[in-house]
Structure formats: structure tokens, C-alpha cells
């Protein structure tokens, strides 16, 4: 459903994505791994339309979407949980949640059922939540746009181990519903647990792709591209 085909994305003259390619099929969970600065966030930003690749093609359900404005890409069914969460601080929890709501199976009630803490705090400012709750709100906000593909950029970043485990359960539940996801992660165990396919990005290129099982035993790739001894 999503095909990123050899895209080159720049910030000014700085050449960050150097022919990166990957694919996500319907209902599939794809992990994107790589060191800090490899270009993972830039790849996510290129898919949602925040950056326009200078070369290459991004196809969504068969149609080229590179260069389209972000709102149009989002409305086609791409949901975004950005790095750092980027909740709207001036808005309440409830306002954040329904901010981009579009009709579909996901409703505010379903998100509240999944994250009861958000209902309790619905009227509070979004930034009064704990880090874990903020992450759940960012996920809920994206789910309410009723996407067919969810982009998650380092959802476990800055979370305590216990919360990361809960996040893992949430991602597994979403996968169980058949939601396709592209998950950028530094947390290798989490990524290996939820993903069907794994891509490793280094210096703006996908240098490895395989199944989680293959990567788990590939000490060479783990050492060279993920810094794991």
C-alpha cells in the first residue's frame, strides 16, 4: 500500500536521504531501525509530505503522493505519531484527541476505552499528562484520523520500561486489528516483537531488510548499523 522508491531528500544543501526505499503492505507492521542521524525521521517527514524529496517516488495505494501537501496525504489515510509527540499544548486532552478526527471505526469512545487515563484527564491541558500518557494521546489523536497506515516515529523514546511494555501491548493490539504501521524505533526488542518486516537505515539508505528473526541473529548488521555489541 506504501512504496517508497529511491527517494533523495535534502535540507538545503545537506543530502540526508540518499535513495532510500521501503515498502509497507496492507496490514503489515514494518520496523525502521538505525542510529541517530541516519535519516529515519526525515523518511517519515517525506512520507507525510513535510519534506519534498528532490528525486524518487512515493506511492500510496498506487498513486504518487510525493510533493502533495501534508493535509492531503493525511486525508488519504496516513496517520502520524511524530517524534517528540508534538501535542498541542494550548489545547485540552480532549481537544487534542479529536483534533483531526475523521469518520471511521475509531471514535473518541474507543480511544478512551483503550486509554482510560485520557478520559479521566480529558479537560486538562495536554502537557499536564505524564510522558506515557502523552504518548498514548499522540497515538489516540492519530487513530481518530482513521488512518489505514500509521507512522510512528520513536514512540518509546523517553518512556520508562514499564510504559514501553504497555506501548508494546498497544501496538500489538492495533496490529491485531489489521492496521498497517511503519514504526521507527531505537528499542530493538520492542521493534522485533511487533514487526513483520525490519528495515535498517544508515546514511540515508536502507542497508538491510529482512524478518525480525533474521535480524535478531545477524550480529554483523546489529553491530555495524545499530551499535549493538
Amino acid at each position: 500500500m506504501l512504496e517508497v522508491d529511491a527517494i533523495h531528500t535534502f535540507y538545503g544543501e545537506s543530502h540526508v536521504l540518499d535513495g532510500a526505499s521501503l515498502e509497507v503492505s496492507r496490514g503489515q507492521v514494518v520496523a525502521l531501525l538505525g542510529r541517530n542521524g541516519a535519516g529515519k525521521t526525515t523518511l517519515v517527514r517525506s512520507i507525510i509530505g513535510f519534506e519534498r524529496p528532490r528525486r524518487g517516488r512515493i506511492a500510496w495505494e498506487g498513486a504518487a503522493i510525493q510533493g502533495q501537501p501534508p493535509y492531503a496525504i493525511a486525508r488519504r489515510g496516513v496517520g502520524l505519531v511524530p517524534q517528540g509527540r508534538r501535542l498541542f499544548a494550548p489545547l485540552s486532552v480532549a481537544e487534542n484527541l479529536v483534533f483531526g478526527a475523521r469518520p471511521g471505526p475509531w471514535t473518541a469512545d474507543r480511544v478512551y476505552a483503550l486509554f482510560p487515563r485520557l478520559r479521566e484527564r480529558a479537560e486538562q491541558g495536554a502537557t499536564t499528562l505524564s510522558g506515557g500518557e502523552q504518548q498514548m494521546l499522540a497515538i489516540g489523536r492519530a487513530l481518530l484520523t482513521n488512518p489505514r497506515l500509521l507512522l510512528l516515529d520513536e514512540p518509546s523514546e523517553g518512556l520508562a520500561p514499564l510504559i514501553v511494555r504497555e506501548l508494546g501491548r498497544v501496538l500489538a493490539a492495533l496490529k491485531g486489528e489489521g492496521l498497517a504501521m511503519l514504526v521507527v524505533e531505537q528499542n530493538l526488542p520492542l521493534a522485533l516483537r511487533v514487526a513483520d518486516r525490519v528495515n535498517v537505515l544508515s546514511r540515508g539508505r536502507v542497508v538491510y531488510h529482512g524478518s525480525p528473526g533474521e535480524l535478531a541473529t545477524d550480529e554483523d548488521v546489529k553491530r555495524r548499523y545499530l551499535g549493538i555489541q
Partner: peptide, 12 residues
């Protein structure tokens, strides 16, 4: 607060 993020959620 964050116009880019608003766009990323489907707001024109």
C-alpha cells in the same frame, strides 16, 4: 503552537 503538525493531521 505547531502549524506543521496540524497539517500532518489533515488540516488545510
Amino acid at each position: 503552537w505547531d502549524a506543521e503538525m496540524a497539517a500532518g493531521l489533515g488540516v488545510n
